[in-house]
């Protein structure tokens, strides 16, 4: 059963993701409506991923599911506000970028390069590969997940800015 505490955590997670997505959206100068939608989608996507991870799914699988949902919803929203889907689906993915894993990858690499002790170096190499592969898989899950709906509904995705 889902507790209120858990729901609250998901809500906070979604809210933070929304703020992050607004900030990353404005770099690419979209319209105001698109910014609002991207915040909404980011909150939904990141909250969903958080819930999936907590219920025991692997992080890249959860990311893939969340990204596909964002992709699908963004086509639907695109039809409502007449704006290409990628304008708000891209920024809403950004809060899911695996920053911490990427950082640990670099850290592992530097430590490996500086280490002279062979046994310790093996450990650092393991860190490097584990974090590096996780980073890569999450990135691919994000990109492929969000572009799948575009591939399945090409007609729909390219005609959203049509008003008649």
């Amino acid at each position: 059963m889902i507790s209120t505490e858990f729901l609250c955590l998901i809500l906070i997670d979604g809210l933070l993701a929304a703020i992050a997505s607004i900030g990353f959206a404005v770099i690419s100068n979209p319209s105001r409506k698109a910014i609002a939608v991207s915040a909404l989608l980011a909150a939904f996507g990141h909250g969903l991923r958080f819930a999936l991870i907590k219920s025991g799914l692997e992080i890249w699988l959860a990311t893939f599911v969340a990204a596909s949902c964002i992709g699908l919803l963004s086509i639907w929203f695109a039809r409502i506000i007449h704006c290409p889907a990628e304008v708000f689906s891209f920024p809403s993915l950004l809060p899911m970028i695996p920053g911490l894993f990427a950082y640990r990858t670099i850290l592992g690499l530097i430590k490996f390069l500086q280490c002279t002790d062979a046994t310790k170096a093996q450990g650092f190499m393991m860190d490097f590969f584990r974090n590096g592969l996780t980073t890569t898989f999450i990135l691919f899950a994000l990109v492929v997940g969000v572009s799948l709906p575009v591939l399945f509904f090409p007609k729909l995705s390219f005609s959203v800015t049509r008003k008649y």
């Binding site: 997670d13 933070l16 993701a17 703020i19 992050a20 997505s21 607004i22 900030g23 990353f24 404005v26 770099i27 990141h46 809060p95 920053g99």
Partner: peptide, 11 residues
């Protein structure tokens, strides 16, 4: 962007 990255850190 500052707020966004701070929110990222909180995430």
């Amino acid at each position: 962007v500052g707020c966004a990255n701070a929110a990222f850190c909180a995430l």
